[in-house]
Design a protein around this nucleic acid. Sequence first.
DNA 1: TGTACATCAGTGAACGCGCGTTCACTGATGTAC
DNA 2: TGTACATCAGTGAACGCGCGTTCACTGATGTAC
Lengths: 198, 198
Amino acid sequence: MPLSKEHKAESRRRIVESARVLFNVRGLHEVSIDEIMANAGLTRGGFYNHFATKDELYAEAVASFLNGRGKLWRDEAGIQPDSADNVEAALAMLKSYLSDEHLEDLEGQCPMIALPSDAARAGPKVRTAYEQLLRAMIHLFESSCRGADDNRKTALTLSSLCVGGMILSRTVEDVELARELRAAALEAAQDVLALNGE
Amino acid sequence: MPLSKEHKAESRRRIVESARVLFNVRGLHEVSIDEIMANAGLTRGGFYNHFATKDELYAEAVASFLNGRGKLWRDEAGIQPDSADNVEAALAMLKSYLSDEHLEDLEGQCPMIALPSDAARAGPKVRTAYEQLLRAMIHLFESSCRGADDNRKTALTLSSLCVGGMILSRTVEDVELARELRAAALEAAQDVLALNGE
DNA sequence: TGTACATCAGTGAACGCGCGTTCACTGATGTAC
DNA sequence: TGTACATCAGTGAACGCGCGTTCACTGATGTAC
């Protein structure tokens, strides 16, 4: 046997991470395999030892977010699986998601913000990966306000508000309007929580 | 003088409209000039009689929505510039924006839904065009609930909810989840209106 | 312990294709006389 | 009114470039003996 399995797995991890970051910043179609491989410290040709096609990489890069910062968010929010009042945790999530830091963190941001239209037009694998991310967010919100009578609806609303507010903030040129949008989304989200968390 | 100015202007209009539709369905970078021109009944080379570069067309195609269906929405919603209670009009707008018809109308849909990440990564002209669309929507909501004490905040929230809910609906594979998202966004929007429209 | 060998991740040149852009040309039209 | 001419929107071949993918090759590593 030549080089160890771990060695190959480590290369693959580097490629996916490199792709995740580059896709986040510049989009799925605007990044070449050349760049992804170079950024991972490898060369063009080796790509096909790991993936059959570029499309295959898309899905894995989007999905990989859940194992990185996506997991971190959950931890930071400090959600206790079966605790009664997790409204505080949901609030922390909201503030973190709609924060300036998150808006400016092009490399580490949530792919739902970075790649909405890319994913919508991509193949079923990418869309499924995107959908899993959304389900994770919804699940998070759902379980953080478990006491509420309609926490499913609340979770869906909070998700649309968070993602929508951030996407619009990202696209707009006017920094002040972007700030206003996030502030309004956060306030509205707090109102929704207050209404449904009584 | 050869062919009339109107003839050239009409060609230009056809190119922009052709581009608007194709961009809406497939994104800014995935559509070639060849296709746009063919779809407008012209050939490749003539493009540069109308636009210096492809980038120039992006912005105009996005902006053109306001003169088409964007204007229609305003008319359909029946907003009276200075009427007191336009909450009904805002409701109609919301329902229309979050409707199944709008979700399925790939060609005619709002570009804020079709092209969010494309616009975010495009040049300042495209981003400005996108921003103007958003401002038009915010203005619409603002003036439809003029009686409220915080109609600006309400308008911003409604915009994030509408655009966010639709973008997520567009991307998700699961049709039922997509429906749920829009239903929740609509209900939440109605609550926001009820709160601020007392 | 030492040596020949097999494996396979990684290399980098090459291929083919599509696309944005250029350019020499065409031909329909309005104008000058 | 009729004819020669100038204009310029539109044509389609060609160019150059980048990118996804392929492929023959390399060389480091673990294994067999």
